[in-house]
């Protein structure tokens, strides 16, 4: 009898041990799913390389980005610019500066603008959306009114094309790096606000919120401890995706000449703008910064999409 039960227990344990280590929260499970997804790995590698390059740019760059060392070898009239060679791996630009150095240093600007603008957009948006969502959930009719007003304004902001909004902000505040950050950040605000509020609204209708209410938990605690943490998944995904958009938009603003760019701080979008006149002679002037923008944005997008999949409740067992 005991031999039988032992054997059954052992077999049952073997079966149960398949995936059940126990004591892991949802974030850990999501991370495990993320690790298994090749899309996430690819995205993470790109993002990591980009961040490392940006941090170590000054060390990695072989020359000063604004040193016009090889100006003598270039000629804009005949469209002759030295291409890739031992000293300059990606060649020399129209002012005789090392392309590789400029690209490497340019990553700093992109990272800075991307991160600061997204943080700005996220914090303002999350505040707005959070307040709106909390009002809706907490304060009955009056709360619904506050939410309605906030969200109508938000919808108006959302209706303005983001680049147009950024251009307006940039022209209003004048040209500087800060302007670009604010301009790009402002366009993200309504997106985050809408997202967090919608997510909170969905969570506030869930059964476990009613269960907490039935326990007698205070509404403010329910919002902070249950609704908010469970609403952050989609927002986190949006943060990652926003970094990609922010980098592209920042490049776009610089391209339009609205960035605070000087020669010592090259920026990918500005490099693209500069390349326009020489496209017939040196396509690579445009190809390098464009590739850098695309690959970086792709990295963040891949990571964001993979994160979305990993956090999808439908995929949970």
């Amino acid at each position: 009898m005991s031999a039988k039960t032992d054997r059954i227990d052992r077999l049952a344990e073997l079966t149960a041990a398949r995936a059940d280590e126990g004591g892991h929260g949802l974030w850990y499970e999501a991370f495990k799913r993320l690790r298994r997804n090749p899309m996430a790995i690819a995205g993470a590698v790109i993002v990591l390389v980009f961040v490392l390059i940006a941090i170590l740019a000054r060390v990695l760059a072989p020359y000063e980005p604004d040193a016009q060392t090889w100006l003598g070898e270039t000629s804009t009239a005949t469209m002759t610019f030295p291409g890739a060679r031992a000293g300059n791996l990606l060649g020399v630009d129209h002012l005789g500066r090392d392309m590789l150095s400029r690209l490497l240093i340019g990553s700093q600007q992109s990272l800075l603008v991307g991160v600061v603008a997204t943080v700005l957009g996220f914090s303002a948006g999350a505040l707005l959306g959070g307040v709106s969502g909390a009002c809706l959930g907490l304060f009955g009719t009056a709360g619904r009114r506050v939410d309605a007003v906030l969200m109508r304004f938000n919808d108006m902001a959302l209706a303005v094309p983001s680049l147009l909004l950024a251009v307006s902000v940039a022209t209003l505040l004048g040209q500087s790096l800060i302007t670009v950050m604010i301009a790009v950040g402002v366009t993200q605000v309504p997106v985050f606000a809408r997202l967090l509020r919608g997510s909170m609204l969905a969570q506030s209708h869930s059964d476990y919120v009613m269960a907490s209410t039935a326990l007698g938990v205070r509404k403010s605690r329910i919002v902070l401890n249950h609704i908010l943490p469970n609403s952050l998944g989609p927002v986190l995904v949006q943060v990652t995706l926003s970094l990609a958009t922010a980098i592209i938009e920042a490049a776009g603003l610089s391209f339009l000449g609205l960035g605070g760019v000087d020669a010592a701080h090259p920026e990918w979008g500005f490099m693209l703008a500069e390349s326009q006149q020489y496209l017939s002679g040196a396509l690579r002037f445009a190809v390098y910064p464009a590739t850098a923008i695309i690959v970086t944005a792709l990295g963040f997008t891949l990571l964001g999409e993979a994160l979305r999949e990993a956090l999808d409740p439908k995929l949970r067992k």
Binding site: I8, L11, A12, L14, T15, A16
Partner: peptide
């Protein structure tokens, strides 16, 4: 969840 595999 307590099931064992049919093979066993």
């Amino acid at each position: 969840r307590d099931n064992i595999a049919w093979a066993d």
